[in-house]
Write a protein that binds this DNA or RNA. Structure first.
Lengths: 212, 212
DNA sequence: GTCTATACTGAGATAGAC
DNA sequence: GTCTATCTCAGTATAGAC
C-alpha cells in the first residue's frame, strides 16, 4: 500500500474517532495527513468508501476471533444448555483485544454506531457474525417468545453502541474509565440478566389507569 | 405565533422524523412548507436553534408528566423499598402519551438520539428529569456499587435510544411493530432485570487465558 | 499509476432592499 | 416580516502534470 493511502486511512480513523464522521471533513483529513484532496477520491472514490476501507482493514481479525469463540462456546456446551454470558462475551470481548492493538479503533466504531451509520456501512461487515451470535443466543434462550427475543436484541445493540462510544451522553454521571474489558464485563452482566428475565406480562403493556 | 413560523416547525419536525436531522436540509424544509429560506434564519437563527424549538414546544408536558409520576412512585412507596419497574415506567411511559397526541414526535426524538445529538441539544431539556429519575432509581437499588450503577445508566440510555427510534439497525431480525406502550413494557422488563443483577464479579473483567 | 490544481453543486448563514 | 443575492465551506468530479 502506498504511503499516501496509509496516511489517509490512519489520519481519518483518528479524526473520526475524536470528532465523529459528519464533523470530520475531507479537507481536515488532508490537512493533517499532508496530502491532496483529490488523493482521497483517487484511492477511495468517496468519503463513504473511505469509511468502509477503514473498517475493512481492521474488522476482519475481530470477527474471526468472534466466530472462533462462538464456536468454542457451542462446542463446550455440546448438547447441553448454552450460557448467555458466554455467548455475549464471545461476541463482545474480541473488540477489546483489537483496542489493545490499535487504540483508535474502538472509539472510532463507537462514533459510527452513535451516529447511526450502521445500516449503510457497518452491517455488511457485521451481519455474518451477528447472525451467528443471534443463533447461539437463541440456543441459550429457547423458551423466550420470538418477538420478545427480537426486541431484546435491539435493546442490546443500543446498549452496546453507547458502551463502545465510551463517554455516552451523560458524562456528569461519572462513568469511571475502566479498561475496555471491565466495561464489557459489566455490560455482559447487565445484558445477561435482561435476556434471562421472564417474558413481559401483557398487563405491563397496558396504559396505566391512574392519573395524578 | 405567525403562520410561517408554525409551518416551518411542523414541516421540519415531520421531515426530521422521516429522514433524520443531518439528511434534512433547510432547503427541503422551505420547499415543503412553502416559505423562504431566510425565514428560517429570521425566526430561529440557525438550523440548530430550529431543532431546539421543535423540542421545546413539545417536551414540556412530557417532562411534567414524568416528574408527576416519579413523585407518585416515591410517595406510594413511602419509607419502604422502591420498585425499579415503577421508576422506569414513570420515566418512559409519558413519551408514549405524547406519541398519541402528536405522532411525529417520538420518531423525531428517536432520530435525534440515534444521530448522537443528545449532548448538544436534548440534554438541556432532559437533564432535570433525568437527574430526578436517577435519584429514584438509586433509592430502588441502594446496594449497587456507584460505578456499576453509573455504567448501567449508560446501558439504559443506549437501549432507550434504539427503542424509541423504532426500527433499529437490524430490521431483518423482525422487530414486530407493537404500539409504543408494549415496546416500553418490554424495555422496562429488560432493564429492570439488568439493574437488579448482582454486581459484576472481578474475574469476569479479566482477559480470558485460553486462545483457540 | 499517482498525485495536483481547479471547478462544480448544494449546504447553512448573512446583509440589505422592500 | 419577507425576500433576493451572496458568502463560505462541504463533498464531488475531472483534466492533466509527473
Amino acid at each position: 500500500m502506498t504511503d499516501t493511502k496509509q496516511k489517509i486511512l490512519d489520519t481519518a480513523e483518528r479524526l473520526i474517532a475524536e470528532q465523529g464522521y459528519a464533523a470530520t471533513s475531507l479537507r481536515h483529513i488532508i490537512a493533517e495527513a499532508g496530502v491532496n484532496l483529490a488523493a482521497i477520491h483517487y484511492h477511495f472514490g468517496s468519503k463513504e468508501e473511505l469509511l468502509d476501507e477503514i473498517i475493512s482493514r481492521k474488522i476482519g481479525p475481530v470477527n474471526a476471533e468472534r466466530v472462533a469463540r462462538l464456536d468454542q462456546v457451542l462446542l463446550e456446551s455440546g448438547a447441553g444448555p448454552v450460557a448467555v454470558e458466554k455467548v455475549l462475551e464471545a461476541f463482545l470481548m474480541p473488540m477489546g483485544e483489537a483496542a489493545d492493538r490499535t487504540p483508535a479503533f474502538v472509539p472510532f466504531m463507537g462514533r459510527l454506531m452513535a451516529e447511526g451509520l450502521l445500516p449503510a456501512v457497518i452491517r455488511k461487515h457485521m451481519e455474518g457474525v451477528f447472525i451467528r451470535m443471534v443463533a447461539a443466543l437463541r440456543r441459550a434462550l429457547p423458551d423466550l417468545p420470538e418477538e420478545e427475543f427480537a426486541w431484546r436484541l435491539h435493546f442490546m445493540s443500543g446498549a452496546m453502541a453507547h458502551t463502545m462510544c465510551g463517554a455516552g451522553h451523560f458524562p456528569e454521571l461519572g462513568a469511571a474509565e475502566g479498561g475496555f474489558r471491565s466495561r464489557v464485563g459489566r455490560l455482559v452482566t447487565f445484558l445477561s440478566a435482561g435476556f434471562r428475565a421472564p417474558r413481559t406480562a401483557p398487563e405491563t403493556t397496558e396504559p396505566r389507569s391512574e392519573e395524578r
